[in-house]
Amino acid sequence: MATEPYQQELAGACVGPNGSAIGMPQLCGDWVWNQVFWLVLALVAIYFVLNRVALPRIAAILAERQGTITGDLAKAEDLKRSAEEAEAAYDKALADARTEARKIADETRAEIRAEVEEAEAKADADIAAKTAESEKQIAEIRASALANVEQVAKETAEALVAALGIDASKAELDAAVDKRIEG
């Protein structure tokens, strides 16, 4: 213990005359109420600052961030869904177009075949008609040729008879020629 009164005055019962601590300063009763007072003041100050300003502000920041993140995730989910929808629509359109194209191709093919068949039939008919006509003409030509041969034969026979000096009527001659041709 510091014994000299002025030292007691100066530093209290817990600090020796050389300024060094006597025992554990933690057990010095002289300082307790000073520390308690300033501690309570400090705690009250910290509590008010935290409770009134800092903690609500940080809570708001964290909530806002959480909200932003959730909103962004939801937006991304929406975008993903619409992208999937667009892809599905594209696939469907592609499939539709493909079937449509096949249908059109089939139809066109059938149409062309029908046209071709029609044209073939028409051509066949034409050919048949022309053949028939030609045959008729040939028959006619043959018939007229036979008639001409008869005529020529009669005239030749008449001329021959006349040249031979035999008098014979035309009717007798014709009948004789007809009889010969038929014979």
Binding site: A11, V15, G19, S20, N34, F37
Partner: peptide, 20 residues
């Protein structure tokens, strides 16, 4: 003097350490 660092002392001037 390992315990000297724990001494409570007035910041301004000397004297006893009161509550305030």
């Amino acid at each position: 003097h390992p315990m000297d660092q724990f001494i409570v002392e007035p910041l301004f001037g000397d004297g006893a350490v009161n509550m305030l």
